[in-house]
Design a protein around this nucleic acid. Structure first.
Lengths: 178, 178
DNA sequence: CAGTAATTTCTGTTGTAACAGAACTGTCAG
DNA sequence: CTGACAGTTCTGTTACAACAGAAATTACTG
């Protein structure tokens, strides 16, 4: 894996690019892509060589990926170096990422909204219009997170079944109008 | 609106912070927050003063927001300046943002994956393992986007109903096992 | 057809995250 | 205890997006 095939290279570069668009460090995303494609766990040194980045950079990025919980440190018999492997189950991987982003970003946002609304209720320096908009937003996040909490428990095959049901799904649920 | 209440200020700052975490420019997000809270459309000049950023920066950011389709240029009778207003329907707003991100990021990713898989099938320099992983990923994005295409058509109230159904929903849909 | 106000585009600056390389720490073998 | 290697942390550099201010453009108005 020290040298990459054109296909591997293309995917890793694209994955890095996508990372930046979603607020993920490019190198972090590239390392994740590399590990995701690798059939075996890789040591940090190999990752650095393959991607052409500094060893120190790899160390930091791996810490980040472990923090997300999608990369794990493993040991290989007869090799004292740390090796790293990516989670391979795509569904579980994205579930973890979504959970984590909810925890890091959505939950704090909900907290801020609640506090803002509470404060706006008291001192009437903040106009009513602002309060209404914040309530809307709060309601939106409340509903969508509750909805996600439910869907995330579906087995991965369930989404496929749901898709196949098509428009029938809404009828089955009795969800009709606005 | 030239001067902000503490609540408004807090929300705008937080929204800007959240923006950066999701790959949205801080100022762009702040302007969006300001317009979202504003009961009336605002001219660029006012936005610049209120947020304390350069007029030119506001101009660029407003273009960006209009590009996303969540801010519109409007005119006020008797005022020749351009005014700007944010979409207020939170559900529609996020639907638009999701659509746009799908178009800009998910669709190109699907294209890359398809091309990578096609190329991997031909020249066997790329090992089979890589091909399998790319297929997994492609399947994942295919399913989730098809699923989103369906859910996005639900009226906003439908999600609330779905949440209230709780675990019953899966039974109604006949979605049982993995 | 000036002259003014509004807006956009251009250009140089700045702040910050990402980074490389060095220094440091820890671990193990002999 | 010493040397070699793996891994982490620190420090200075770099690259780039974000930005302010100036210049240019556009749209009116009298």
């Amino acid at each position: 894996m020290t040298t990459l095939s054109p296909v591997q290279q293309r995917f890793i570069l694209h994955w890095g690019e996508m990372g930046t668009r979603w607020g993920i460090n490019r190198t972090v995303a590239q390392i994740h892509a590399l590990l995701f494609l690798s059939p075996t766990p890789l040591p940090a040194e190999t990752i650095a060589e393959t991607l052409g980045v500094a060893r120190s950079n790899v160390s930091t990025s791996l810490k980040e990926l472990q923090g997300w919980g999608i990369v794990k440190l493993v040991h290989i018999l007869g090799d004292k170096r740390d090796h790293f492997e990516s989670m391979k189950d795509v569904w579980q991987m994205f579930r973890i990422v979504l959970d984590e982003r909810k925890r890091r970003e959505i939950d704090p946002t909900l907290a801020v909204l609640r506090e803002c609304i509470a404060e706006a209720e008291e001192d009437k320096e903040t106009d009513e219009y602002t309060e209404d908009r914040l309530r809307d937003l709060h309601g939106f996040f409340e509903t969508t997170t509750a909805w996600y909490a439910q869907v995330r428990q579906w087995p991965s095959g369930a989404l496929t079944k749901f898709v196949k049901l098509g428009a029938k799904a809404r009828n089955l649920l009795g969800i009709t109008g606005g």
